[in-house]
Design a protein around this nucleic acid. Structure first.
Lengths: 208, 208
DNA sequence: ATATAAATTAAACAACCGATTAAAACATCA
DNA sequence: TGATGTTTTAATCGGTTGTTTAATTTATAT
């Protein structure tokens, strides 16, 4: 008889542990020895299952991306029949939640963010498959709100203004928390932040 | 007779080369061998002059911070007699220029940005000495614009909205450039970006 | 010029890394 | 059970890293 929990496949175990460590420390600082140790597998397991460290990293990215997509659908769960302003609000709210909420699905976002300062070969794929679609989705809402008063460049810049605001609260998290005198983002904090960005941005999109 | 240029002190030479390499590759990826090679000094020079790699990094941070402060004064060259809206515009314009302009003074900003994903012991000092003062400066302008309609929290959030927009164009530079189909930020691009952020944010600060 | 200190050099050290190997343990199925 | 393929293990291999050393060269001051 075995008193342990139902044992997970080692491949999956490594993918999850490696995801945590890569997110914490980045590709370079993370060592296969550390990953294997925390996973409770032998040092040679990574090379046996994945070939080498680089291929493990790519597998980790793909694995955690699929997990994130399960919780966070790529259409952001937005109701197509809503008004343009409502759609933008829903987008920002969902996007902020993705960025600031803790838990396993947020691991992909952290791995993602690391690609900016420490880009690997996976960077281009991430841009094409994750960023551009999201950017185009947001742009479509902005275009509707601006009406016939839009230019391509204006839409692009406004989309970046919104992305920039949202991403700041994750990328500059240590600073934000220190200024707000908090230890972490509470659900109420997240709500306040998304409401602020929605309010600020809807006014920013005004033409007068 | 010596046909070489006037020789720089080796300490200074190392500080400049190391600054470039740390900014390019980060603390961990940068090797003392590479730094010494590019500086044209012996491998042991870093430990001789600075003690070890970590102390060199801290010296690099201090050195390039002082260079940046020479070109970019901490009051952002803002005229105290200007209107609140004008002061905010000047601030954003100068801040964007700091972030996007190429050249030696921008090295400090790059080193700075790396501290977020790869924080060292210098992180806390940077927050207190560089970030907080700038944050308070921006907050003072925002407070003036919001008038008696402000709360501390609202000012904080608005300041973050503005910082977020500005920083996005540097932190997400690879993405922005790909979307704009550019190779780098031209002076005109920088002007367009700062004008957009000013316009977007002034409207965002409206109360109605 | 000579003694003393500072600077520079080449070589090596110890620790760590990713990757490999060959053997042992395990599972599967005839 | 016995044969076959898969998984796991401990040990080790090159290679790179930051750091140190001891000897040599250069500069400084008496």
């Amino acid at each position: 008889m075995n008193s342990e929990k139902k044992e997970k496949p080692k491949v999956e175990l490594i993918l999850e542990t490696a995801g945590e460590i890569f997110a914490e420390q980045g590709f370079r600082k993370a060592t296969v020895r550390n990953i294997c140790k925390r996973s409770g597998v032998n040092l040679a397991a990574i090379n046996y299952y994945f070939g080498n460290k680089e291929k493990l990293y790519q597998a980790v990215l793909k694995y955690h991306r699929s997990i994130a997509l399960q919780k966070y659908p790529s259409d952001f769960g937005i109701n197509e029949s809503d008004s343009s302003r409502k759609k933008l609000s829903s987008f920002i709210q969902a996007f902020i939640l993705r960025l600031l909420e803790e838990g396993k699905p947020s691991l992909f976002g952290k791995l993602f963010a690391r690609e900016f300062t420490e880009p690997t070969g996976a960077f281009d794929i991430l841009i094409e498959e994750s960023i551009k679609p999201t950017f185009n989705l947001l742009s479509s809402f902005i275009k509707e709100i601006l009406g016939n008063n839009y230019s391509v460049k204006k839409v692009e810049l406004c989309a970046m203004s919104i992305f920039g605001q949202c991403l700041y609260f994750r990328n500059a998290k240590p600073i934000v928390l220190r200024i707000l005198c908090k230890d972490g983002y509470s659900n109420e904090n997240i709500k306040e932040i998304s409401e602020h960005i929605i309010n600020f941005s809807l006014k920013g999109l005004l033409n007068y």
